[in-house]
Design a protein around this nucleic acid. Structure first.
Length: 880
RNA sequence: GGGGGCAUGGCGGAAGUGGUAGACGCAGCGCACUUAAAAUGCGCAGACGGCGACGUUGUGGGGGUUCAAGUCCCCCUGCCCCCACCA
């Protein structure tokens, strides 16, 4: 083999990337808007990957994400769609600011440098991305429109300021959204235990869209079920009632004050033994009796020092104190004591709960502890036993001890009691959501400034649209502590009020970066627009996104916020659809082989493990635990994409990632499997080499186009054509709908195996058809190799669009047809043999043929079968 | 506690509406080529029994429906993910 005919991915990949770039092959086609051209108009297709944070280095998770989207984009192009496949950067955020604090670098410069670095790494993957549409959320020409959109929310009454108890990260010195605090009460970024603080903060009223966000979930049939479920749980709608308990004094006289509770079980209102408030409830101070003062204050102090996680852990003891007041149960007039307790949350419902120990497990535990009465008011249907021994009876049943509602089933009682409360004025039905408004204020520098001005005379004044963007001041020295950096820059803060002209102060909070990422997919449709974030025309043409691809970690926040944005912007008339992403693919993570010393807990780099079949700690000789886990620096289990590309080329990396696991499953990185993929690509190279040696050419000036083979075809030709068209059918199906790239690649392997055995003896037209189809099918997966082989076969004259401008092949049903098929002979459902029969044999013929077979006579032993089941083309089951 | 998902060879994974379980690949074994090795090519390969043709068994466990079950139904076990004192 000569050197020039060796597969050298490093050479050919770089060459084709340059060529494609110079031919502008990846640019998004301009969509013709004129009606005249509509006949020729290609249908748009929008393939989108979740954009990365520009950390500076590409990791395998990125590679998997973008390769999947790239294959989808390339397939759609081959199918004649006008494809939008963009990329950008989620570029605001803490890492840049932290780098600035630690190393004194400029966050903008640091970010731009990272972007440049990652862009080059991405380009090496051969992604067909339209880089002319690149956006970075930290650039003023982008965040100008983030600000503009914020003002839309403000104008719509969907952005407001409110004093709120917020999560304060003592390390990053900033406020965090609930979603950025993990289950242990730690900051998602710094890992610090989050504290509580009261601050005035900006919120977006996502709760105003809670119903729509929930009710539209069933529309998203192209989303994974579990993502829809996660969102539904997160929104958490529950139906119940607000009931008002009047505060009464010792003599039973009403005070005029009321405690409003929220309950999903109004049917249990006759079982209330006490009413309990959150310690933070605003009425606690005024209602506390003189004798209880000290005790109550001590309790509130105690609860205040608990972390959220301590307080809300399910198994934590429920503690409380009576505050020395009592309330009247509006349903039965009974007086019950008023308590405060740590198990009641201030920010859910009304911050007050009616205690029904017989029918709520928490109330039950609480009542047992403080010897409060337990009165059963619901019994299991058809029983009158006390079913709550050892725990509360929390399921539905029939009412007792409930006055006029006795005997009603729970469901009906709920409606009747709510109706009674409404007509008597002590309550009403109410829907409650778990979802809270979105806290978007951040006391950080490296974010999008909130474009408002605070004027003593005019209040909160939006920055006029023509004055946008409110640019971040450059050249700031960031200390990393003491609250908002912007607040310390007097020259930036001090500004004239746009309304009255008097001196006023800029808002110094910046926005949660999720704001920036909630609309970037809209900007790609019209990235250079300088008068609007996007034109209605462009956004309605390209969106909704046909296929969105990204990690499951964004199942709730990013996707929910984006859906919220879309609905608000639709209501503002800025776009004409109400869900942004038609189909969603959540790809699994990439895991690396991980070695851990079970005793010391130390992770060992694979390179330091001498013998992987007997992994031992190089320092101590102890046997190591071996498993696969998400790649991370601290576990030394990462694989650098650049190193893989250097060694095997991008095509091998792409093929491996697509083949190794279905896209939504976790993928275990395995060097041996990477080698296997590399070998497969080399086999393809040699296959084309052997075709060249035979003088085959796909040049239009050469032999007649494939498919024109003269019948009758030889057996080998027939078999090869069958393999070719089976592959087209199978791969087309794998790429439709569920995206089974792994089986698509295996079909490519099967086709290549078939060609290895038949190509040499095949007639020229059949051989050429096979080569052409193989390469076009390969093109989305291994774009460089496919293009190179295409050219080597002479099919790529200058000025031609190359293999990526070809059309996806069509299945020729005639090629799949067979003269004979092999049917399975079963006896009583067990496979006992096979028989070749004419493909068009009908059931009766088939039965006759099988009954006459040796297999039948062997197993039936002369008996006539009692029953014969015939599945034409498949099997015959004989039941003796 | 609530919700969702998964369980198939040594490994990753295949198996339209029930119809030959284990495609494709990795690792492994044998053969060819080679002085040798690598690379490459060809072949074998769920387990058990048998020289073999073959037979038995087999998709986490137990039942069921069916001519036929990885696939449908019931029960159980294990693992993963999300939510969670949400009243």
């Amino acid at each position: 083999m000569t050197d020039s005919s060796r597969y050298r991915p490093q050479v050919i990949e770089e060459r084709w990337q340059q060529r494609w770039h110079s031919q502008s092959l990846d640019l998004t086609p301009e969509l013709d808007t004129s009606d005249l051209a509509s006949a020729a108009k290609a249908e748009p297709y929008y393939a989108l990957s979740m954009f990365p944070y520009p950390s500076g280095s590409l990791h395998m998770g990125h590679v998997r994400n973008y390769v999947i989207t790239d294959v989808i984009a390339r397939v759609q192009r081959l199918r004649g769609r006008a494809v939008l496949h963009p990329m950008g950067w989620d570029a605001f955020g803490l890492p840049a600011e932290n780098a600035a604090i630690e190393r004194g670098v400029d966050p903008g410069a640091w970010t731009d440098q990272n972007i440049a670095q990652m862009r080059e790494q991405l380009k090496r993957l051969g992604l067909s991305i339209d880089w002319d549409r690149e956006v970075a959320t930290c650039h003023a020409d982008y965040y100008r429109w983030t600000q503009w959109l914020f003002l839309q929310f403000l104008e719509a009454g969907l952005a407001y300021r409110s004093e709120a108890t917020v999560n304060w990260d003592p390390i990053d010195q900033t406020v965090l959204a609930n979603e950025q605090v993990d289950g242990e009460g730690r900051s998602w970024r710094s890992g610090a235990l989050v504290e509580k603080r009261k601050l005035r903060q900006w919120f977006l009223k996502i709760t105003a869209y809670a119903d729509q966000l929930l009710d539209d979930l069933p529309k998203l049939q192209g989303w994974p079920e579990r993502v829809r479920t996660m969102q539904a749980n997160w929104i958490g709608r529950s139906h119940g009632a607000e009931l008002r308990f009047e505060v009464v004094d010792a003599s039973g006289a009403g005070s005029g004050q009321q405690i409003t509770v929220f309950t999903t079980r109004p049917d249990t209102v006759f079982g209330v033994s006490y009413v309990v408030l959150a310690p933070e409830h605003p009425l606690v101070a005024s209602l506390t009796g003189a004798e209880q003062q000290l005790q109550v204050e001590a309790f509130i102090d105690l609860v205040g020092r608990q972390s959220d996680q301590e307080r809300t852990a399910e198994d934590s003891p429920k503690r409380g104190v009576p505050i020395g007041a009592q309330v009247r149960n509006p349903a039965n007039g009974e007086l019950v004591p008023l308590w405060i307790a740590d198990y009641v949350l201030a920010d859910y419902g009304t911050g007050a709960v009616m205690g029904v120990p017989a029918h709520d497990q928490r109330d039950f535990v609480f009542a047992r502890q403080y010897e409060l009465p337990v009165r059963q008011v619901i019994i299991p249907e058809g029983s009158d036993e006390h079913a709550y021994e050892g725990g509360a009876w929390t399921t539905a049943g029939v009412l007792i001890h409930s006055g006029e509602f006795n005997g009603l089933p729970s469901g009906e009682a709920r409606e009747r009691i709510i109706a009674a409360a409404e007509s008597a004025g002590w309550g009403q039905g109410r829907v409650q959501f778990r979802l809270r408004d979105w806290l978007i204020s951040r006391q950080r520098y490296w974010g999008c400034p909130i474009p408002v001005i605070h004027c003593e005379a005019c209040g909160v004044v939006p920055v006029p649209a023509e004055q946008l963007p409110v640019e971040l001041p450059k050249g700031m020295e960031l200390a990393g502590k003491g609250g908002s950096p912007l607040a310390q820059l007097e020259s930036w803060v001090s500004v004239a009020c746009p309304c009255c002209g008097k001196s006023a102060r800029r808002e110094t909070d910046t926005m949660d970066t999720f704001m920036c990422s909630s609309w970037y997919y809209l900007r790609y449709s019209d990235p250079h627009n300088t008068s609007l974030p996007f034109s209605r025309e462009a956004v309605d043409r390209w969106l909704p996104v046909d296929q969105y691809v990204g990690g499951i970690e964004h199942a709730i926040l990013h996707l929910l916020y984006s859906r919220f944005f879309t609905k608000v912007l639709r209501d503002r008339g800025l776009l004409g659809f109400d869900e942004p992403f038609s189909r969603l693919l959540t790809q699994g993570m990439v895991q690396g082989i991980t070695y851990k010393n079970p005793h010391s807990g130390k992770y060992i780099a694979p390179a330091d493990v001498a013998d992987p079949s007997d992994p031992r700690d190089p320092a101590t000789g102890e046997v190591l635990d071996t498993f696969y886990e998400k790649m991370s620096k601290s576990k030394y289990n990462g694989v650098d994409p650049a190193a893989v590309i250097d060694r095997y080329g991008a095509d091998t990396a792409r093929m491996f990632i697509l083949f190794k696991a279905p896209p939504e499953k976790d993928l275990e990185w395995d060097d041996a499997d990477v080698e296997g993929q590399y070998r497969f690509l080399q086999r393809l190279w040699r296959l084309v080499d052997s075709a060249l040696e035979r003088g085959l050419s796909l040049s239009p000036r050469g032999a007649s186009p494939a498919g024109g083979a003269e019948p009758p075809l030889s057996d080998g030709d027939q078999e090869l054509r069958r393999a070719v068209h089976t592959a087209i059918a199978a791969i087309s199906e794998d790429l439709d709908g569920d995206y089974q790239f792994n089986t698509a690649v295996s079909e490519l392997m099967k086709l290549s195996n078939a060609m290895a055995s038949h190509l040499e003896t095949a007639s020229e037209p059949v051989a050429l058809e096979a080569l052409r189809v193989l390469l076009v099918l390969l093109a989305p997966f291994a774009p460089h190799l496919a293009e190179e082989l295409w050219q080597r076969l002479g099919a790529n004259p200058d000025g031609d669009q190359g293999i990526h401008g070809q059309s996806w092949p069509e299945v020729d049903p005639a090629a799949l047809r067979r003269d004979t098929v092999t049917v399975v002979i079963q006896v009583k459902g067990k496979v006992r043999g096979q028989l070749d029969v004419p493909a068009d044999a009908d059931a009766a013929t088939l039965e006759k043929l099988v009954l006459a077979s040796e297999v039948a006579s062997k197993w039936l032993e002369g008996q006539a079968p009692r029953r014969v089941i015939v599945v034409p083309g498949k099997l015959v089951n004989l039941v003796p």
